[in-house]
């Protein structure tokens, strides 16, 4: 007899015949994507609750509450305006509007993706206790971020009090540009939230990637500034080049969005979204075990 009454077991490697396949693998590529979309559709009410909870939580303890949605982007714009015009002596006509038209949508993208990335890991407690489609978490985070962007648009509107000559009917196309950006953001949110559950490095890495991405997007400068520079070709591969240039066209230049490029970004985003949903559904069953 072994000490302390441990049973004397011999390790027998049991061979299981015809091991049933887990449900996630039984459904194919398309099946999992359809299931993911259905999850989002049938749990609309849950998403709605999550979004409203998120909005209530964010500024719950502040004196002026929701007004921060308007004030935050203003401060950021002021800082960049000073940086670009005073420190770098860059001559931009009506710089605040020029910068704001790009910084506002970028902030939407950046804060939404980083919020969504931790949306699954942040709910570990609940995931270990309750069965529900986890894909609602990054989707709700993306939607909550979009609501903040919507409020931010009011501060953009306020800017036209100072720059009325930049107003044009093209401003009405902002929802279309935002819709393209939304699909792209949602795709990355779903993908990163799934991967971050397995590799927590993603959330740390993302901070740096986002910063580099920002400077490699035409936010503090326009694509035209890069005339003759090789850097142009790097930016050509960046979806945000076309998204930000489109925003600036309609908000600053009295011009149409870059329709062709936007269509391309939308197509790419839809493919990416399908892929992200597939990855998410594929690994979803493992969340409860590793969280």
């Amino acid at each position: 007899m072994l000490p302390f009454g441990l049973p004397m077991t011999t390790r027998v490697r049991a061979v299981t015949v015809a091991r049933p396949v887990p449900a996630a693998r039984r459904l194919g590529f398309v099946g999992l994507i359809i299931q993911g979309v259905l999850d989002l559709k049938t749990r609309g009410r849950l998403i709605q609750h999550l979004v409203s909870t998120d909005l209530k939580r964010t500024h719950a303890d502040t004196v002026i509450g929701q007004l921060w949605w308007l004030i935050d982007p203003f401060f950021q714009m002021a800082i960049y305006s000073i940086l670009v015009t005073v420190i770098f002596h860059k001559k931009i006509e009506d710089a605040p509007l020029f910068l704001f038209a790009a910084i506002l949508p970028w902030k939407w993208f950046q804060s939404t993706v980083s919020e969504a990335t931790t949306s699954v890991t942040g709910r570990g407690n609940l995931i270990r206790q309750l069965q529900f489609p986890k894909i609602v978490l990054p989707a709700a985070a993306t939607l909550a971020g979009s609501v903040s962007f919507f409020f931010g648009l009011f501060s953009l509107a306020l800017l036209y009090v100072f720059y009325p000559h930049h107003l044009s009917h093209w401003l009405l196309t902002i929802p279309i540009i935002a819709a393209v950006q939304f699909v792209f953001t949602l795709a990355l949110s779903i993908l990163f939230s799934a991967v971050n559950t397995f590799y927590r490095d993603v959330q740390n890495l993302l901070r740096h990637v986002m910063r580099i991405w920002f400077y490699m997007s035409p936010a503090l400068y326009s694509l035209a500034d890069l005339q003759g520079s090789g850097f142009r070709y790097v930016l050509a591969f960046n979806p945000f080049t076309y998204i930000l240039e489109s925003y600036r066209n309609v908000a600053y230049y009295h011009a149409a969005p870059e329709w062709g490029a936007l269509a391309g970004v939308l197509a790419l985003s839809l493919v990416l979204l399908a892929f992200s949903i597939w990855v998410f559904k594929r690994v979803e069953t493992g969340f409860a075990k590793i969280l």
């Binding site: 609750h49 409203s52 909870t53 209530k56 939580r57 719950a60 303890d61 709910r123 407690n125 609940l126 270990r128 206790q129 309750l130």
Partner: peptide
Amino acid sequence: AGFEMEVSGRD
């Protein structure tokens, strides 16, 4: 589990 601390009990 899953209580959201910053919002009300009703929510």
